[in-house]
Design a binder for these strands. Structure first.
Lengths: 136, 136
DNA sequence: ACGACATTGTTATGTTATATAACAAATGGG
DNA sequence: CCCATTTGTTATATAACATAACAATGTCGT
């Protein structure tokens, strides 16, 4: 089968991201978290009292789409929303949330190692800077 | 803002792929094609009389999800489905499809150049092999 | 201090991509 | 020739992402 697509960086980027996301998602399912959930927990942990919209901006998720996401995390008892000034609300991890995040980190760290392990050594150190240049 | 996520290859991969896909999609909209449409046209062109399910396998798209995709391409007059053996059907580009593909190629080629141009020179040649190692 | 303007959280809604299960019809290997 | 597999298809569900609108609130310039 002729595959002219593999020569296109954009196509390879898409396929690689899909494969990665699918594998990571299934591993995170073991602790009942989605990819976006884990990202939120990590970012809230690193930025205590961050605002819902600031979190959305950091993750490039629209305000409107943060609502069901945060509802789910709050419903699972992982985060708490505290009114900040009548308009904004500050987000924080509950104890349960911190514990779950610790579990997620174990999974994620192992995953990232496996991911980099798939890349031939001579290309490995170039991957992260190259990828970050594409969006940051 | 603390951003522990940018250090994670998996996260960078996701963000880069999203940024790429969003930009390419909006450029392809100029010729009324989606990302998946363009991929199909390219692959059908490179593999004349390819079967619908073989195309789906090559693109990692489920058989069931190929149906609306191919319906759309056929409805737009870009491809033709020809019964092959009573069970399979062979796909081919119409003249309109070939012309549209030529337009798409111009857009895609320019896009891939721009994409690689965003990557610092010292990392550039490592991107494609690194990405392909992650899924192929 | 006030008024114009921007921001926040939210609801509602739509689209795209992707997943599974089921089906009839047809193929192909043993 | 039979049985497992493949093909195209329908129906359906979920996740991710987008837009528009809204009320309430904050902010900034004057």
């Amino acid at each position: 089968m002729q595959d002219p697509l593999s020569h296109l960086p954009g196509y390879a980027l898409r396929r690689a991201a899909n494969a990665m996301l699918s594998e990571l998602s299934s591993r995170l399912a073991a602790v009942d978290l989605r990819y976006a959930d884990a990202s939120c927990l990590i970012l809230i942990d690193a930025n205590p009292a961050i605002t819902a919209s600031a979190l959305g901006r950091a993750l490039d998720i629209q305000r409107a789409n943060m609502v069901p996401l945060l509802n789910r995390l709050e419903g699972a008892g992982l985060i708490a929303r505290t009114p900040l000034d009548g308009k904004s609300q500050s987000l924080s991890l509950t104890d349960t949330g911190r514990a779950r995040l610790a579990e997620a980190r174990t999974i994620i760290d192992a995953f990232e190692l496996d991911l980099l392990g798939m890349v031939p050594a001579e290309h490995r150190d170039h991957l992260l800077p190259a990828l970050n240049a594409l969006w940051q």
